[in-house]
Design a protein around this nucleic acid. Sequence first.
RNA 1: GGGCGGUUAGCUCAGCGGUAGAGCGUCUCGUUUACACCGAGAGGGUCGGGGGUUCGAUCCCCUCACCGCCCACCA
Length: 938
Amino acid sequence: MLEKTFDPKAVEPRLYEAWEASGAFKPSEDPNAEPFVIVIPPPNVTGSLHIGHALNNTLQDVLTRFHRMRGKAALWLPGTDHAGIATQMVVERQLAAAGNIGRRDMGREAFVEKVWEWKAESGGAITNQLRRLGASCDWSRERFTLDDGLSAAVRKVFVQLHKQGLLYRDKRLVNWDPQFQTAISDLEVEQKEVDGAYWHFAYPLADGVTYQHPVEFDDEGKPTQYETRDYIVVATTRPETMLGDTGVAVHPSDERYKDLVGKDVVLPIVGRRIPIVADDYADPTKGSGAVKITPAHDFNDFQVGKRAGLPSINILTPEAKLNDAVPAEYQGMDRFAARKAIVARAEEEGWLKEIEKTRHMVPHGDRSGVVIEPYLTDQWYVDAYTLAQPALKAVENGDTVFEPKHWEKTYFEWLRNIEPWCVSRQLWWGHRIPAWFGPEIDELGNPVVSAERPFVAETEEEIIAEAKAFYGDRPIKIVSVADLTAAYETEPGTIHLYRDEDVLDTWFSSALWPFSTLGWPEKTPDVARFYPTSTLVTGFDIIFFWVARMMMMGIHFMGEAPFKQVFINALVRDEKGAKMSKSKGNVIDPLALIDELGCDAVRFTLTAMSGQARDIKLSKQRIEGYRNFGTKLWNATRFAQMNGCVRVEGFDPASVTQPLNKWIRGEVVKTLGEVTKAFEAPAFDEGASALYRFIWNVFCDWYLELAKPVLNGEDEAAKAETRAMTAWVLDQILILLHPVMPFITEELWDKTAEEGGPARDAMLISTRWPEMPESWIDAEAAAEIGWLVDTVGEIRSLRAEMNVPPSAKPALAVVGAGEGTLGRLERQRDLLVSLARLGEVAIADAAPAGTAPVVMGEATGALGVAEFIDVAAEKARLTKEIAGHVSEIEKTGKKLGNPDFLARAKPEVVEENRERLAEAEAAKAKLEAALGRLAAMG
RNA sequence: GGGCGGUUAGCUCAGCGGUAGAGCGUCUCGUUUACACCGAGAGGGUCGGGGGUUCGAUCCCCUCACCGCCCACCA
């Protein structure tokens, strides 16, 4: 006999092990089985499971289990990401906290060693947590972005893209993170609104030039008064950048400055003469209309500088301190200290014209949190524009479909405006770029050590070969950067190549995930069988970072989009709707919830709430509700057990004769259809609610209650049929619920087999999803049980309203029953008596005195409640009910009285309304008759 | 500035062209041998405002308001 409640803690680890040991997590090797493939969004290898992972992975597991049960070769491929910058940051912090020397002092090799140590220490945590979630991943195929196979894929992709001209080295402005001292991509920049100011500076004109500047205007905005100026005003939010100014731009059509174009200003502090240029970028309506140009430290200015032929002067070190390109007194000064110093000096020297306080957006590194500097460096770029075109097309033409569909707009928006992707990072933890540099060759064929020439190949042998082709007969040697200077001196005739120090953006390797994990570039059976994958389940926050890039790389290298469907799941928030964060302390730990309420409850909650394609506000109360749902199922099974509802070998649901059993059979068919459709879509919430409704509100509330009198009755045939049916329905419930609540269902699958009946062929996880014919839905049985349920509901409601004590068993007289109703009444009499707690049930010609009316379809029941009747209360009740019918009659009557409605509405709608009107009129008549009798009595 | 999403019962949300729904909470009743992590019943909404289309609008269109998010923007 089952315990009173399910004990998840005792069961979960045991079942998980049993599943894994059985090989159920591996895809079927049946060559005829259609593949169903999901690649996991790889969590950070050193991370731990948060509620967002729990949601995302629950949905993936629901899909995987569902399709596995449907007979597909289901593969859920797990793995982890090395998460370059994030992991490096964690380890650096740990080193600092432990009072260790920093990474730069430690050196690259030692530092990377430390990171691997940290990975070894904490790397298993996240995958073990996925196991606790019940994730049925094929662990035998687990991958890590830095393992050998994936690293080979990364090298191959880098080299091929380079060969195809889709990956190149370029000197341009990048988003520079001064804390990590690396370039980051546009996506890793977060705009934050901060308090700032526009500082208006007067730059003096060179050579004594002056001009007339308008200072007063009439109503039409025409200048009425001018003043003579020997300076031009520019405004900036970053005063320190003025040290790098190489020009001032005005709009070509700006009358105010027309005569100044071509003239110079003398840059204060620096004393450099810089030209005033005309450029469309300058907006006459903003500020003074003149804008200072710092090509080396501003993205717009860089473009202006290019067009106007202005030089770029870099004034910053990688730490964002002023470098030796600025006057000595500012060298080595931090950028923010320099800002203050320059403003102070401007004020002192009288060229600070105005300070305009403002709030504006400033770029910050999403990991470091520090202000990003545009910085001029050599980096590797991917030609994202070219790769984006087929990726756009694949979604436009439906090869890949987003669910919900509106996310496609987001995807399109980004890809249509895509910029070159900077993929090199000045970090140590990641895939080292397979590029080596040698000296450039001048016109005379002599090496120029000061100019780098890149060679790109997968191996050093290939590099040497390429270098030979380029440098001719000279001896060629690969050395480390550290040894480079010494090598030049000791081996002057030799060409020295050294490897690029940088690593690749983490997302570069993630972009290959759907095929690199299958073994590509090797031609493995997995690549052939499992690419492209079926559904990607992920959050909208990484559509750009990851989804779009996988689409680009997948199509480019595999010739086919990596997924047929992209399911975007919501973001989980706390119950007040706030984003969870450690600093706010509102983080919900899924593992704590699993400990407390069981994995199944957490999974069901997340599944049920996943319909919200935006925010999920998670509350513990909700999870408790679904824990209760599990208990309900547990106890229903327990009830079945207590009543000998054992599975019967060869039982055929088509053979049942009892209306009750025919009815529940039809309900099972309907539920199977709903759940199957929902998980195929997928529309997880719909599947969850169909299951919940059927199991609790249909099976427990009605079928089992209606089965009780049968199981306690004398009719042995009906009893046997109902027992077998109950066991069968329970089996179907376990199967349908298994993808969402795998543990409790598997446990019950096992326990119910202990009570006798045929042995189980397999664990539930490996059991096939059923198929049932529509013909199992019996309309007559459904109508009969529907009638019974309605009648019971009516009587219960009436009893409650009239305060009939639960122990009282009033008689029921049925008036006006036709042939059909009499038959139903005969067949369902026992159940009606039992569920409505009635005494005698008789057929009568008229309602006896002292009864209250009950609508029973065409017939009327007269419930003998004389002793409980409070005439006034009953009058009020009847009057209220009649009023309800009257408003219904009015509404429907009005509709049916409208010729336009009759002419234009669909016939079935008109018919439905006619029926509704007739029913309401009949019910009203019955109740009015009862009210009349009551009046006569009272 | 551009875009996306939202506004339905006290709360959290379904529904998305033909009688307004669920869960939780609230109130009343209940020791009917599965379950109090339960059962029975009840109350509770002019579906954000205003227009329009339609025989009919919570649902489609327009518009306004408010909330949230994404992208762009540091003169």
